[in-house]
Design a protein around this nucleic acid. Structure first.
Lengths: 249, 249
DNA sequence: TTAATATTTGCGGGATTGTGCAGGATTTTA
DNA sequence: TAAAATCCTGCACAATCCCGCAAATATTAA
């Protein structure tokens, strides 16, 4: 069998089944594993398949995989994500909102972590989905195009039925007197429901948003258990929050 | 044997078997390997065959003519998507399953279309979300990592509450006697529910999967209203389905 | 017909490609 | 954490390709 012929066959199989295993192919075509692996590598370089450990996948699924570099204050959010990850233990049920900070959190999850994540944020779900050991529960309802999360009564009532261990929330504004606030009515309803349905509330934000305010209140400061920013906890900007009894990381 | 004669013979062989080996030819015609190679080269330059190491392939393999970005059966799925789009009218409620064909459909939606799409397929939702005039409803439940759609009782019962105008379903196998079949139990439950909740069922598939079968039945052939493939409706392969009363596009 | 010219073919030898294999590094899985 | 599977690297060897050249064959012109 000619090399090209073989590669055409492999391509055919990949696109038919969306995935192939190297061992299946090498047995079926009757060539060595190495040859198959080299074929997969070439096809992958040509962008026709996506090579993974043990086989290959169809590229169709992995299209709009946006690179994160262009996200505003990328490194700060990465730092926040690292801190947040340390709070998650095996077996936990975790509720998460949407927002770019949450997506960085999703990407920072250690591969061995076994947990259940519940969210209505489509980009976040996309990330959770790629994790090997995480179960993902999707909150269904109508999509809000601005924020790319599901919003509405159905979503709220589904969230109310839950009791999660943790809720990670990316927030848009916070100050001591008025607590967390936001500017989208529908999103706020979802956030409120999430806060009620979780034992602990962890708020994530870049320092820029500290001591700012938006028109709609999400919750009061005292509801917050933990606040995570990219700053060191002993930064004077955070002092008032620590004094108010909030754990700051 | 004259050069012309020889080349005509080679061409004949290539078109007959889709491939030839240089060594086979040189032995059979009783000329040197080099001669054959020169012949192949000329035919390749004329675009009548595709020369590869060790022999040549029929141009219908046309792997190598692709520009790098193109994916196998991309054009076929694109064709299917175009046909499917023509069935959607403004204001419709549309249920869709998952699968790469559905994703192509999502990408092919004309920008001016106003409609509501309901799905549990995360990649599909991602596409719908980017459309300016489409409302998206997400079916929530646990994610099946293989198929990247939500599955489970909650999802099924949500789908049962709906009555959509159309259901677009990417299918894995179909034949006349046993209808549509698939190989994932959870996904089949979702598909069954979708079929019951839509006025019309439109099945999308590349011709490859026609007259094949998988272990779990999704629905009988008579449930199908419309079948869309990349082939022309008068293709003999589709004839039995038309006779069974299915509209074929 | 014959000589001059052009084309085709075969061949030698060096470069390139395709394949399998051994080993050690890495990843996955339990 | 250890065992199993998979991956990578370098190597050997055979098959194939490419280049130049000379012999063989075909084509053309006088």
């Amino acid at each position: 069998m000619l090399k090209r012929e073989r590669q055409a066959y492999i391509l055919h199989q990949v696109n038919l089944h969306n995935k192939v295993l190297s061992t299946d192919l090498s047995q079926h075509i009757n060539v060595s594993d190495d040859t198959i692996r080299r074929d997969l590598q070439e096809l992958a370089e040509a962008g026709k398949i996506i090579k993974v450990h043990g086989g290959a996948l169809s590229p169709s699924f992995h299209y709009g995989h946006h690179t994160s570099k262009e996200v505003y204050s990328y490194t700060q959010k990465k730092t926040i994500a690292q801190k947040a990850v340390s709070l998650i233990k095996d077996g936990m049920f975790v509720l998460t909102s949407g927002g770019t900070t949450i997506i960085e959190l999703a990407r920072a999850l250690p591969p061995h972590l076994h947990a259940t994540f519940i969210s209505g944020s489509i980009p976040a779900i996309f990330e959770y989905m790629n994790h090997p050991n995480i179960d993902v529960i999707v909150i269904g309802d109508k999509i809000s195009k601005n924020s790319k999360i599901t919003v509405g009564l159905e979503a709220v009532s589904r969230i109310r039925q839950l009791k999660a261990d943790l809720c990670f929330m990316g927030i848009n504004a916070i100050n001591l007197e008025n607590g967390v606030s936001d500017n989208d009515w529908d999103v706020v309803q979802i956030k409120k429901a999430m806060i009620e349905s979780a034992q602990k509330l962890v708020c994530l934000t870049i320092a820029e948003k500290i001591n700012s305010q938006q028109p709609i209140q999400v919750c009061e400061s005292r509801k917050i258990d933990t606040l995570i920013t990219e700053l060191s906890p002993d930064n004077p900007l955070l002092e008032p929050y620590i004094e108010a009894g909030i754990r700051v990381l």
